[in-house]
Amino acid sequence: MATSPGRNTVSASQLQGYIDRIERLRAEKKQIGEDEKAVFAELKAAGFTPARVRDVLKIRDAKPGDYDEAKAELDMYLHALGMERESPLFQAVGLMDVDITARDQVIEAFKLLVPKKGEIIVKIGKTPVRLWRDSDGEAHAEDYREPKAAAQSSAVQQAAQPRKEVPDVDDAGAEVLGAEAYKANEPITSNPFPWDDKRRQAFDKGWRDASGTDGMGPGGD
């Protein structure tokens, strides 16, 4: 039978070397860990929050791209759950209803966000504000008159848009159209005139008179 490797073979002493090195490194690591703890204790004593400092370290560790991505993702999740955190800007926005000076604070906060090239238009309170930077890089704000349609919800616009063409008739003509619509078995809500057109009521009246009802189904019997 072949001899099994004895205690003092070459491989055994090699192994001993590795183990010694690892043990030394471990001792060092322990020492470093303790040193780190001491730094944390020190910064805590100085009034910093250790947990936040750890967060900062983690962020400094990560690649910038990875961090931005993670942050956007976190924001999105929080938003989806309706629990997004409020930055001071949004607190100021929340206060705007009750505190008129809050509007200025919001505008100041927005100034910081204005890019070098380009502009931001925000509706702060009732009036929109345009923010931009001049050639010296200084941010400015001015009230902005928006083209009205921009604020429109497209669904509302569509809903309010009469489906049919608005007939070219006067009030009396609209009343006749209402009566005709009734006779053609069209609902009273098939009124082709928009909400702010006086002829809308004339059509409604024509329909009601022709049906002898108020437009909400047949009269009582």
């Binding site: 919800s153 809903a159 609902p187 009273i188 809500t189 009124n191 437009g215 909400m216 189904g217």
Partner: peptide
């Protein structure tokens, strides 16, 4: 506006019997 609820158009309405 849509994020606050559904927008119903006049065409979809029916008359209630009251």
């Amino acid at each position: 506006l849509e994020s606050f609820g559904d927008i119903l158009t006049p065409e979809e309405a029916s008359e209630p019997i009251l």
